[in-house]
């Protein structure tokens, strides 16, 4: 952990030294087949990169120089050079890659293949497929522990969070969660895994050590039916204090105090909010809103939505190169 923190601090320092590279947010537009690039300093759309069929999952290389894009209908991963803002490489990724994450050492790319029940491991240097772990039906959510030893993948129809040994590519445990789990996220201290259940309407908090559910968070948005409150994206601040949970068709982000596990506030964002990303300094959170085709900017300190930025068609995920996402 101390190593992780110092590495993160180092990256922040590095980013501060080269602001042009530090301040772009990359948004995958699922139906637009493009990546929208937002300048995070000015919060303005900078450019749009055509990228291939059905871009969804995004991940950043450990050096911040590359953003990887999962192209679901092309069965490929595209690599975008964050400096030239163009596609520098593509490689085969198995059938229907949905979400992707990189290992903390930057060597491995993890891919959930929604259509073949597999978590696939790629060597990022050689683009070679290392192997796979067979999971439940429709793998989607993906999280890597801060120490890089464990990968957690969720399966939408089997309703499980699968804990996978990152080195041996073997399943360590399967935890049954609520219906249609979409996303998993480790707390920055690596002690908890949060798993969202879109149809179950909950977040299951799993103890990363015992791999048992320790608590379930449910959301009650005043004036909204329970069935319209569908947790999908989870973003935990780098300092580990706040979790932002996107509630899909409720058009809101729930702000959760990580320690007390209490919902502090609901923030109205654009329509059908999927995933989100913090700026490296945790000052802002940007959300991808799938139906209103925009990105909402949340001032994290004030817990207020301060801006919305029009992007491509059906924005799905966001990454902002910087310290590794928890």
């Amino acid at each position: 952990m101390p190593f992780e923190m110092s590495r993160a601090a180092f990256v922040v320092a590095l980013l501060a030294a080269s602001p042009a590279f530090a301040t772009d947010a990359f948004v995958s537009n699922e139906k637009g087949n493009t990546i929208s690039v937002i300048d995070v300093e000015s919060m303005m759309l900078k450019t749009t990169i055509p990228v291939g069929q059905r871009p969804r999952g995004l991940a950043v290389s450990s050096d911040g120089k590359t953003v990887y894009v999962a192209l679901g209908d092309a069965d490929q991963i595209a690599a975008i050079d964050t400096k030239s803002l163009s596609v520098s490489d593509t490689f085969d990724a198995g059938r229907d890659p949905e979400r992707i994450e990189t290992s903390p050492d930057g060597k491995t790319l993890y891919v959930t293949n929604e259509d073949s029940n597999t978590l696939t491991f790629f060597n990022l240097e050689t683009k070679e497929r290392l192997g796979g772990a067979r999971l439940g039906v429709e793998p989607e959510g993906l999280a890597v522990s801060p120490d890089g030893k464990t990968v957690v993948a969720t399966t939408e129809t089997t309703n499980m969070a699968h804990f996978v040994d990152a080195e041996r590519r073997k399943i360590l445990a399967n935890v049954l969660v609520d219906a249609r789990p979409r996303m998993a996220a480790f707390t920055p201290d690596g002690k908890e895994v949060w798993v969202s259940a879109e149809i179950g309407g909950s977040i299951s908090i799993i103890d990363a050590q015992t791999r048992k559910i320790v608590e379930r968070i449910r959301f009650e948005v005043p004036g909204l039916r329970a069935e319209n409150v569908q947790p999908v994206g989870i973003n935990i601040s780098h300092d580990g204090t706040l979790a932002f949970v996107s509630l899909g068709p409720a058009n809101r982000m729930a702000v959760v105090d990580v320690k007390s596990r209490k919902v502090l506030k609901y923030l109205l964002v654009g329509q059908r909010v999927w995933h989100a990303a913090f700026t490296p300094d945790d000052k802002f959170l940007l959300t991808a809103n799938g139906i209103s085709n925009d990105v909402s900017v949340i001032d994290v300190g004030a817990l207020k939505v301060v801006k919305s930025i029009q992007v491509g068609e059906s924005p799905w995920e966001l990454v902002i190169p910087g310290p590794a996402k928890p």
């Binding site: 198995g94 073949s116 597999t118 696939t120 772990a133 067979r134 590519r169 399967n174």
Partner: peptide, 17 residues
């Protein structure tokens, strides 16, 4: 068929629970 799908590199079967 499932195993064939993920060929050539074979997926590891799930660990017995």
């Amino acid at each position: 068929g499932l195993i064939l799908l993920v060929a050539p590199a074979r997926a590891e079967p799930p660990a017995p629970e």
